[in-house]
Computed example of a mutant assay.
Amino acid sequence: MEKIGVLMTTPMSNYLEQELAARFTLFKLWTQSCKNKFFQENSSAIRAVVGDTKCGADAELIDSLPTLEIVASYSVGLDKIDLDKCKDKAVRVTNTPDVLTDDVADLAVGLVLAVLRRVCEFDEFVKSGKWKNGHFELGSKFSGKSVGIVGLGRIGTAIAKRVEAFGCPISYHSRSEKSHANYKYYTNIIDLASNCQILIVACSLTEETHHIVNRKVIDALGPSGILINIGRGAHIDEPELVSALLEGRLAGAGLDVYENEPEVPEQMLGLNNVVLLPHVGSDTEETSKAMADLVIENLVAHFSNKPLLTPVI
């Protein structure tokens, strides 16, 4: 398959890059100084695109590749792929579900603990030598607090199972009630936020869930509430979140994703009640390799005329 052209849209994983290069003719879009010239010279050779949550495959990219057959996402998310365009062009789409579920769920719980127990503040308190000279403000317990989860898919369900161990009452909001779930279901997110102390966003990003957490939701969560986002940055109206934190209308937040990554609202950088991570929900060595292997296996299956392991389209 070394003559089959595969386009990586952005840096993702050194291991993935090496494995793609070993099996296919690999093109790296981010290294091209003149993309128009690059596509003129190579578009007909590219039969696959590998993208992620930063740069997937929009309509313009798909239209520029006349022999494109498959888009493989190095992520469970599909919001950076124009699925309608792929359907129109009969381009297959795959992603990497399941392999990252545990890591993201683990991190969600870690963010809750970090915010409530002020882990980052206390780390700095010790390392800076302040412990020798003064007292520290107390954090808040996690166990027993009511938790609301936005989106009860694979990741949301995995988060709920972990939260159960802390003795937390769990409720959720999603497009429909889940028959397998024994948690309280709310038909709208405002009611969910009004009835929980910790709100965790774990849904997929669609037109309907864009800014699903707005001022009304934040105010419903209230000045004692904690907001955690391990979904997508655009789930939250960021300016409204910033103002709520600055005005004390929200107690704290733990974020792994942002609207304009890698840009983070500057006003949040100095807030002690906010824990900020650089979109590392699934970035462990084990999961990164497993995701890369799944991308490779899907591409090999496609070009060998075998069923895809994780087909989307």
Rank of each mutant, 00 (worst) to 15 (best):
L199H: 02
L199A: 00
I200Y: 00
S204H: 13
S204V: 12
L205S: 03
L205R: 04
L205G: 01
T206F: 15
T206M: 13
E207H: 15
E208S: 15
E208N: 13
T209A: 08
H210G: 09
H210P: 12
I212L: 14
I212G: 09
N214S: 04
R215S: 15
V217I: 06
I218Q: 04
I218S: 00
D219I: 03
P223D: 00
P223Y: 00
S224G: 13
S224A: 11
L227D: 06
L227S: 05
I228R: 01
N229P: 06
G231W: 10
R232D: 10
R232K: 10
G233E: 12
G233V: 08
H235L: 03
I236W: 05
I236S: 03
I236H: 06
D237G: 07
D237I: 02
P239A: 07
P239H: 04
E240A: 15
V242Y: 00
A244Y: 00
A244E: 01
L245H: 03
L245V: 03
L246I: 13
L246T: 10
G248R: 04
R249A: 03
R249T: 02
A251M: 11
A251S: 12
G254T: 06
G254Q: 07
L255I: 11
L255C: 11
L255P: 11
L255N: 10
D256Y: 05
V257P: 14
Y258P: 12
Y258C: 08
Y258W: 15
